[in-house]
Design a protein around this nucleic acid. Structure first.
Lengths: 307, 307
DNA sequence: AAGTTCAATAAGTTCATCTTATGATCAATA
DNA sequence: TATTGATCATAAGATGAACTTATTGAACTT
């Protein structure tokens, strides 16, 4: 291992440029002997002469010229490391890997990504959409910087902040639009369509039903809210969806949306990240941006409740 | 100016690789606190976090990954600087800029360049052919590494070593081949063709004539020995050429070559270089190679002297 | 031959870096 | 829940590298 120092390279570069020990030393803000010694040291370590010392002037040897080029390369590269650091601390920059659960992603992301790129133009946003357990794993491994999931997560290593809470609404086929609103009990008697295993929304919907009484009579699993709504539209049953999904999912389906009577089922969506993440401070900022983006979306859902 | 050190980069790289302070410290042959401190110092200087310190494991931040890449770049580049140095000191390598006077170059260079590339395959030989004063200037400026000229040069800054000495021979037109050999005196009466001003060979030839008596009656200048011989062949006069030029220059000309009687005119050809040149040692080796190449050429000229 | 310029050397001081020892934090386990 | 083990941070003292000023030495100039 060669044991030259960046300091030596700096001195060397200065000497190569000035061709004069005194001037180079002055440029480096050190004394002439200090520079002489470091150059000598460098020549000894390299085992090669860098300068040809003539009485009046010094000149780079051929190897010295090669070395000077290389030294400039190295010094520039080191400077750039400093630049990179500065860029990454002044404002959020580089990559932000954000995980979102599937029952939020399609409705929240468009406005969130827009708001983020507006606030942090140099941010390279990577999105991962999958179920909560995987998101938490990836967060723990450092494969994600943050995740938007339903709270609570209750991992000691993770910080969490609430973003908003959203209601669940009932989706029935259009011809049942005027039928009486079922309560949790009567939902059990209907054909309830739910997301497949793994989705937290499935558990949340089920827990609402089970809150009052046993499990529903029959359950059919789908892999997305979109599919669920299409199934409902085809008369295969009823389902629950988060209110935020309503505008998108009911646009092309003939279904009726109904809010439940109090106590309405809701869930809290929040953002989580590793407590120790150096991005922690900036993630709190980002949470605020997400919160404001979501406000726009939740304002949208003020449709009259079917009571 | 960013004040990180290569040492810090080495420690950082080790830590990035091992993901463990203790192991990285061991790999660097230092104590764990020493490594901790240097990493901390580096983070402070850069103003950015490099590692996310979890209780059980540490992980590079995003910036840390970028920095690690950059650090590896820099370290590799520094290692290569050492390699370059090693390569350049083990054997002569790279560029050798060699100057040769015009009355030697065409006859000596073919065998010398061949011998040099055989001995130093990685040597990149640059040849400069011009008159002695220019060669000496360029040598002094560092634009040449060495020069082959007629001795003595007598520059205090330059080292010189004799390579060989060569006779001057008389060139007459073929039909004068059997005429009596002129002595220096009678040369003055003939039309003597010489090289133009500036060539040392001109001065050497003149000094031979003047040695015994005044300047020659008439002088015509040519710019190369080849031209001189062609002029002689055309019956325009006589000339002197160095013996080494005979095989090449008389091949296609109908001229007669005659050696002078003792004391024969000769000159000593030698090699010169800056005393302080770091190549000094290797230039002495090169001189030896040139010497041996020239031996082949001087053996060639053992033609019977016309007495 | 004397003076000037410039780099190398010498001697002493300062400051950075290392070491050992200890403390703090977190995770795993009884 | 307290304990233990692992891991990194901190503290304090020791070492050594790098710097300073002063001086010498060599080469070029006048």
């Amino acid at each position: 291992m060669i044991n030259i120092t960046l300091k030596q390279l700096r001195y060397f570069e200065a000497l190569a440029r000035h061709g004069h020990f005194g001037k180079a030393a002055e440029a480096c803000a050190i004394s002439q002997p200090a520079l002489s010694m470091q150059i000598k040291e460098m020549e000894e370590v390299l085992g090669a002469t860098l300068f040809e010392r003539g009485g009046r002037q010094i000149r780079l040897t051929h190897f010295g010229e090669i070395a000077a080029d290389r030294a400039r390369d190295i010094l520039r590269s080191a400077e750039e490391l400093g630049d990179l650091a500065r860029a990454s601390r002044d404002r959020l920059v580089g990559r932000l890997r954000i995980g979102v659960i599937p029952t939020i992603a399609p409705y929240l992301l468009p406005s969130v990504v827009g708001a983020l790129t507006k606030s942090y133009p140099e941010l390279d946003i990577h999105v991962r959409e999958t179920v909560t357990p995987k998101l938490i794993d990836e967060l723990d491994d450092g494969r994600l910087d943050t995740a938007i999931v339903a709270l609570p997560v209750s991992e000691a290593t993770l910080a969490e902040t609430a973003l908003f809470s959203e209601r669940f609404v009932l989706v029935r086929s259009a011809r049942e639009a005027n039928a009486p609103l079922p309560n949790a009990d009567s939902l059990r008697e209907m054909r309830l369509l739910l997301l497949e295993e793994g989705h937290c929304f499935r558990d949340q919907a089920l827990s609402f039903c089970n809150l009052q009484s046993g499990p529903p009579r029959e359950v059919l699993d789908a892999s997305s809210l979109s599919t669920l709504v299409q199934m409902v539209s085809a008369g295969m049953g009823v389902t629950l969806i988060p209110e935020m999904a309503v505008p998108v999912e009911t646009r092309s389906a003939s279904v009726a949306i109904s809010r439940f009577e109090a106590p309405e089922p809701t869930r809290t969506i929040g953002m989580v990240w590793r407590r120790r993440s150096p991005l922690a401070g900036q993630l709190a900022e980002i949470a605020e941006i997400v919160r404001r983006s979501a406000e726009g979306l939740t304002a949208l859902r003020e449709q009259p409740a079917i009571s």
